[in-house]
Nucleic acid binder design. Sequence first.
DNA 1: TTGTACGCGTTATCAT
DNA 2: ATGATAACGCGTACAA
Lengths: 334, 334
Amino acid sequence: MMSIKDIAKLAGVSPSTVSRVLNNREYVRDEIRKRVLEVVKENGYVPNNVARSMVLRRTFTIGVIIPDTFNMFQRQLFSTIEHRLEQFGYRTMFFFVKWNSESESDCLRRLKSESLDGVIMLHEVQYQAMYKYLNEFPNPVVLCTFGCENYKFPAVYVDEVDAARDAVEYLIQHGHERIGLIAGAHFSFSKLRSKSYVEVLKSHGIEPKPEWQVVVPSYTPEDGRQGMETLLERDKSLSAVFAITDELAIGALRALHEARIRIPEDVSVIGFDDIDISGFVEPALTTIHQPIVEMGERTAELVCKLIDEGKGAHPKVVLPHRLIERESVANHFR
Amino acid sequence: MMSIKDIAKLAGVSPSTVSRVLNNREYVRDEIRKRVLEVVKENGYVPNNVARSMVLRRTFTIGVIIPDTFNMFQRQLFSTIEHRLEQFGYRTMFFFVKWNSESESDCLRRLKSESLDGVIMLHEVQYQAMYKYLNEFPNPVVLCTFGCENYKFPAVYVDEVDAARDAVEYLIQHGHERIGLIAGAHFSFSKLRSKSYVEVLKSHGIEPKPEWQVVVPSYTPEDGRQGMETLLERDKSLSAVFAITDELAIGALRALHEARIRIPEDVSVIGFDDIDISGFVEPALTTIHQPIVEMGERTAELVCKLIDEGKGAHPKVVLPHRLIERESVANHFR
DNA sequence: TTGTACGCGTTATCAT
DNA sequence: ATGATAACGCGTACAA
């Protein structure tokens, strides 16, 4: 591989001059600049990032922590982030982490070895060690899709409680009272959305019975299917179900179809996230739209801003959600 | 940040000894080894990968080239690859590339600057410059999901022609003759699957009319929906449709539902890929299963093997597909 | 305006 | 068995 010295020799100048040219510094005669650029182009020379990082003590790399089972919502999020970061001149290094302590501590070890310029967490990790490390991390750390109670991290998210309220209120406004819940394990968004469900029901004088609520282990359509089956076994009189993610909702749709239950005539379903497949399932899913693209972009912009301006501030960015009315909820008042 | 010198001082040894300990080399007294390891642990020291790459002239990083609009099939593929590579001690650096020359040449520039230990292409790029560069690349390059005609790259894929034949033959065996095709632009798999469709029809004495075939610009469900609408406008008598990816098929399902056409009673649909949502749509999609996990793992293993053994060989690994019978195809002979 | 020399953190080589 | 030293490719302070 060609180095800056080779270019220098070929152009008949010193390595520092080549460096100055490549980094657009002043104090280079136009004539020399032109000659160097020519030699660079001719030889297809590209600076070695490893050596660059070494001396600059920056990697121009942002670490992005995501669950290894990332769903379609997170998939859209992280490709948006990657794209925006690249526009800012940063590379992205993904850290896929599983829901267990070995994987998390392994991730932590890798994080430490990478000299990252910043970190984005798309994944709410389970153990405190990671948060503790990142809290003392010299470079910016931004959470995306969730907040952290114990430490002050900058974060970008939607108001989960408010958004879930909109979903459940919508069902109630359409005449539903016996409303089931399919929630998932682990993450705070699940707890928040579930809490909101309980509160809304109570505020309308409806007692949210325990048998109306299931918590499934993960967030795949298969989990949603099984959750819905459980609900069906427990109480045949449910007229609507709030699945706290679209993927769970899609699984619920499947279970209902298999049980020959009409949607939305017999049972209505509402989801959350508005992943891009949601408008294409049968019936098209009514759901809460999270501004995925905006969340990703704001997150990327925020890390870059904090890198430039220092990580003094820890802003919370709350983005607006909205309900997308499609076909999976019946109006019992009509 | 702590360096190997700091650890050396704290342990009362030289940096070389610390290096030997950390790299599990011989010629270190057990006692010293123990002491060094203790100091390392106490201080949470982790070697700096940038410096390591600098001197070793390896980055332990594999570049993975994927389309920026990667679909669910590719999503599953690349997370499998990432996971397997990590088990082999390699990091993964993703290069998202768009379908235009600026994006590709930009990707090429980034590729050059990264001193990668290997490259995996999950994406069939459009211009030859990239293939030319990678062909002369000193480290292994493996293609996944497609082959290359002009250069001899190692590759892992399924037999597209054979697999597409299975799909279309299945429709014919179920009594379908007027079979539509929803294909996509750009990639060789689309051409291969389309070609197979034409051949199978002809071999059964059916003339594949041009109006039965649409080529949509991309591979999203929305493209599939529009493709199906076009087909519906052109010829109402189609009894089945072969959508060359599951995402297109899901969009086709949607278009049929919107047109109040029953699936599979009125129109049957068969897909290709077997992405994980395919079993959950209504009706569950009959499709060709690609061994996604195996493809990913074989690809990752192949790069690692070629890195270890030198990139002399360029094996082609053809993996078996199979047809997954679900609910979206009716048997007209019953 | 340009060149020289040094240092970034690590590993390999060679000397002890 | 351990330590000293050079080298990897680049950017920069400082000398010219």
